[in-house]
Write a protein that binds this DNA or RNA. Structure first.
Lengths: 229, 229
DNA sequence: TGCCAGGATATTGGATCCAATCTATCACCA
DNA sequence: TGGTGATAGATTGGATCCAATATCCTGGCA
């Protein structure tokens, strides 16, 4: 079974240190969908998932409802849930949201950033230089961005930003596999970090907006080509 | 019972034309929370809600999970859910998100706006002039904003924007009740509409950002005073 | 040969039941 | 008298069971 195959590995190594079974199932499924372990369009059969997780159908149902609210799964009444499809239009949608949220997060965070934060960001850039694995690269990229936003002091804004960084990751997987990492991305990361170190908020916000925008643009072009072909 | 009282009225006049009971419960509860019919901090007892809706506890449970994913309810394992609290910090958080999303939505929508859209926006401003009821005012305000963003062609961005407009409404209720509607708001609406009619994207985006920012600022000040006192 | 109808099957949606756990109360002891 | 521990009640979390609905296949008919 395509679903169980990759997922059961995730389930096996997932620490069930969650307080309820529902939380455990939701977190693991979300990870699986965002990381691409379960492909878009895959039907999420309740019974099958329940068996994989070793629980009854009920916590699975509640978890699926939460995933629906996060736009990671689509419900069709009496026909079940499927993993949300990916499309060029949706990729552009997520890109637009990131272009709106991330400059705001950075602007709020910048004054509070410590030297340690900036050093950690620099270290993450260095790690990305030598990384080939797409999944790991996505995680490093996400951590780099979130490190810069961490001092915004706006929990909702940060949660929303991270959620859409994760959603973008899911998309970027497809691009990574075909084209490799976007070469200019690292240059942009370095320029962004330099602006943050200089405390130049306007420049930093402009850079992050351009950075996200270019990534989204290239992704959209790639996906449109994929849909056309 | 404080919960049932206002809620049962909503339930009574709600058309159960939803495909599943869970959808019906979720939509009605969301409306009740956002509109303030159920106050922040109110415990959401599953049995009580089930009785009010005339269903079993199960669809209530699934609906509550979805509300949690939307940050409208907070879950405490084995202790139940409560309606999400409101706070000055959270109000500022929502304000920051709106300030990020709405200029982006407007910029994407502006080129596609029709004369009919602009006329409808103007009509909504006129309606707001003569409106005293806070709930109705919030709805008109929301429709005005969403009308201007409607042609963005980004479903996720629009859904997120509307969700945070609704969340802001929930907060504004408290301010309405104490201070009435912010007087300068209508002037800003008119200026914004004028910029849209002129097709001046930069000005329109700047105006909407300022508009949202000022509303958020005043709200935050009000809530901080309320929390201090 | 193609299309429509009807029934069998699979899967979800909803109800009921049981177990786990949290809270509050009360007795008991220092 | 104040604090601590045990116990009872209430409430949620999870499992199982039943009903409702969609899909798919097959057979009959034009």
């Amino acid at each position: 079974m395509a679903v169980n195959d990759g997922l059961s590995r995730l389930v096996a190594r997932a620490q069930p240190r969650h307080r309820t079974t529902t939380e455990f199932v939701e977190a693991t499924l979300r990870e699986a969908i965002l990381s691409g372990v379960i492909a878009p369009g895959t039907p999420l059969r309740q019974e099958e998932l329940a068996e994989t997780f070793g629980v009854s159908r009920m916590p699975v149902r509640e978890a699926l409802r939460q995933l629906e609210a996060r736009a990671l799964a689509e419900f069709h009444p009496h026909r079940g849930a499927v993993v949300a499809e990916i499309s060029a239009a949706d990729g552009a949608d997520i890109g637009a949201i990131r272009m709106a949220l991330e400059p705001m997060a950075l602007r709020l965070s910048l004054p509070g950033l410590t030297a340690a934060d900036l050093d950690q960001a620099e270290e993450l850039i260095a790690e990305m230089d030598g990384e080939a694995d797409p999944g790991r690269m996505g995680e490093l990229n996400r951590r780099f961005h979130m490190t810069l936003y961490a001092r915004a002091g706006r929990p909702r804004l940060l949660a929303l930003t991270e959620q859409h960084l994760l959603a973008a990751d899911r998309y970027l997987r497809f691009q990574f596999a075909a084209l490799g990492y976007r070469p200019r991305s690292q240059d942009e990361h370095r320029a962004l970090l330099a602006a943050c170190r200089a405390g130049d908020a306007d420049a930093a916000c402009r850079l992050v907006e351009e950075h996200v925008g270019e990534a989204a643009e290239q992704l959209t072009a790639f996906l449109e080509g994929r849909e056309a072909g």
